[in-house]
């Protein structure tokens, strides 16, 4: 197959370019990551992140033929013979397919992504019914790969002010947790024309999430909570 890969090395390149690689696949090559690893075997200067190779660590998110995806769970069989791989859009490129995710994580951190409960801890576990626990499904599974936020035009325009779909999904994960006591503090933190309300329900996030999660739905839940609080 033919891979056209975005290349940029600040040490030597004045500007980025696409480099073509011809990769011979065998039957053990299932995923796009396998093809990228083969390209790197031809040319060790090609740089990209990867780790678990099973879709749980979130390292290898790239823009593949125009869509943000995880290379390790993108089946080669479902791709055309010519694939163009670029870094995630909207974030500064450090080198080749490696982007600077500082802004993305800054937004994640800004939602206070941890359970806040100031009661003295009981001797055993805090209780939570299976139904209450089910509320966290579709939220806690996020792998912070940034496919969603870097597919979101609102995040492209205002990465410093708009929390973005990944951060907001996690904001709701803690709002939805019955063990958390910081609901109003969390809502205060989001009630802002930019932080939450830059979401215009474009739903690119839902379209690209490799884990099948739905940040738009979570964002709507937060908006509902704000409305309820106001009336």
């Amino acid at each position: 197959m033919k891979l056209s890969i975005y290349r940029y090395n600040p040490d030597k390149d004045a500007k980025p370019y696409l480099q073509d690689y011809e990769v011979v696949l065998d039957h053990s090559d299932r995923m796009l990551l396998d093809a990228l690893v083969k390209a790197k075997a031809q040319d060790d200067t090609l740089a990209f992140r990867r780790s678990c190779r099973e879709g749980v660590c979130g390292s290898d998110a790239f823009n593949v033929n125009g869509k943000n995806r995880l290379a390790c769970i993108t089946k080669l069989a479902e791709l055309p013979d010519h694939v163009t791989v670029r870094p995630l859009p909207g974030l500064p490129v450090i080198r080749d397919l490696i982007v600077d995710m500082t802004q993305f994580f800054k937004q994640y951190h800004s939602v206070k992504p941890y359970v806040i409960n100031n009661d003295p801890p009981p001797e055993r576990e805090r209780l939570q019914s299976p139904q209450e626990r089910d509320e966290l499904n579709g939220l806690y599974e996020c792998i912070l790969c940034a496919c969603c936020s870097t597919a979101c035009p609102s995040f492209w325009w205002n990465p410093d002010k708009f929390v973005g779909p990944a951060g907001l999904l996690q904001a709701y994960r803690f709002l939805a947790d019955t063990r958390d006591q910081a609901t109003s503090e969390r809502l205060d933190n989001l009630e802002d024309p930019y932080r939450l309300f830059r979401c215009h329900t474009i739903m690119n996030c839902v379209d690209v999430c490799p884990k099948g999660l739905n940040p738009t739905k979570a964002i709507n839940h937060i908006k509902e909570m704000l409305v309820k609080r106001a009336v």
């Binding site: 299976p130 966290l136 063990r179």
Partner: peptide
């Protein structure tokens, strides 16, 4: 207590 989303039994444990 840190927030780990363990699955739960009917009695909440």
């Amino acid at each position: 207590h840190m927030g780990m989303p363990f699955d739960r039994l009917e009695n909440g444990k």
